[in-house]
Amino acid sequence: MQVLGGDPEIQVVGEAKDGLEAIQLTESLKPDLVTMDIFMPNMDGLEATKEIMFRFPTPIILVTSSQRAREVESSLASLGNGALDIIEKPIGPFAPKFQDSSTRLIATVKAMSKVKVIRHWRNPNAAPPLKPADARSSLKSGDFQTSRSVRPKILAIAASTGGPAALQALLSQLPQEFPLPVLIVQHITQGFTEGLASWLGTSSRLEVKVGKQGEALMPGRVYVAPDNLHMGVTELGSISLSSIDAIRGFRPSGTFLFESVARAFGPATLAVILTGMGEDGLTGLHAVRRSGGRIIAQDQSTSVIFGMPGAAVAAGIVDVVLPLGDIAGKIISLVPMT
């Protein structure tokens, strides 16, 4: 509250003591954005998020100081219910990371307040399906370049804001017999990566785990980049982790992953860039393009933030732009099941 109120560009219009009051104030004050804690009396942040996104959709970011398993699980479930991001709560002016966490919170609030959100349904099965892609979704007539006949041997994905829910939707559509290893870079608050992998695994037929140094890549297994380490691959087909400096502010970085996969797999690389703020992954996608690999980008209409995929689209290096609901089908069409 004090951190946000201290910024001249942010006006704090209300403060709720619990989830029920958060719903009431959101309805009456119609704020540009809600910051939501998870554990509150009467109604927790998970239920409050679900109700707000059903009744009067409003950008919501989760602000937490805890990394307990239960809070991680509830926070990720809230992302699935429409919350946009999880941010570390500044815990006091004398804490070592106070300035960094305050700066990130303020920047995120300003960026997310401009996001247009959609209604989320109480029963996910009742939600209207995403519209299928049409010819306008592709940057090139005829879809992927027909001259590239090399079958993909690896799938690399990068995402940021809105990514956990997008990843959940994509992975849940891949079949159990999916034959490629899948590597993921997702920007998320430190301490939440193990919980993210576990949460994604509950809705996927594939095994989802945090990648470990030297681990052999296995078909049909999903590897999530660990906290504060870049993740790449070796030419021998194993995971390589690195603590080199952040790339344009990110560690793990989508660019590091894409460049590494392009070096190791060349034209057999399949890269996917999903919703996210900024341009992480762009330089790495240029490497994928030079190597002859294929690139899929999530479209603007289904992206929470079109920054990362939009940068790749603007650079003219993407093969096809698709709504989120069509990406898994496109991947499967390129990777025949054997």
Rank of each mutant, 00 (worst) to 15 (best):
A69W: 10
R70F: 05
E71T: 14
V72E: 06
E73L: 06
E73P: 04
E73Y: 08
A77Y: 05
S78R: 01
G80S: 15
G80E: 11
N81I: 00
N81D: 07
N81C: 06
G82F: 02
G82W: 00
A83I: 06
L84F: 14
L84Y: 09
D85S: 11
D85F: 11
I87E: 15
I87D: 14
E88D: 12
K89E: 06
P90N: 05
I91C: 09
P93F: 09
F94A: 14
F94R: 15
F94L: 09
A95P: 01
P96M: 10
P96Y: 05
K97P: 01
K97D: 15
Q99N: 13
D100Y: 10
S101E: 09
S101C: 11
S102I: 04
L105E: 06
I106Y: 13
I106P: 08
A107L: 12
S113H: 12
S113V: 05
K114W: 01
I118K: 14
I118Q: 14
R119K: 14
H120C: 09
H120G: 02
W121P: 01
W121F: 11
R122H: 13
N123F: 07
N123P: 07
A126I: 03
A126S: 02
A126W: 04
P128K: 14
P128L: 13
L130V: 15
K131H: 05
P132E: 03
P132H: 00
A133R: 01
D134S: 00
D134P: 00
D134L: 00
A135Y: 00
A135M: 02
R136S: 14
R136T: 14
S137N: 01
S137C: 00
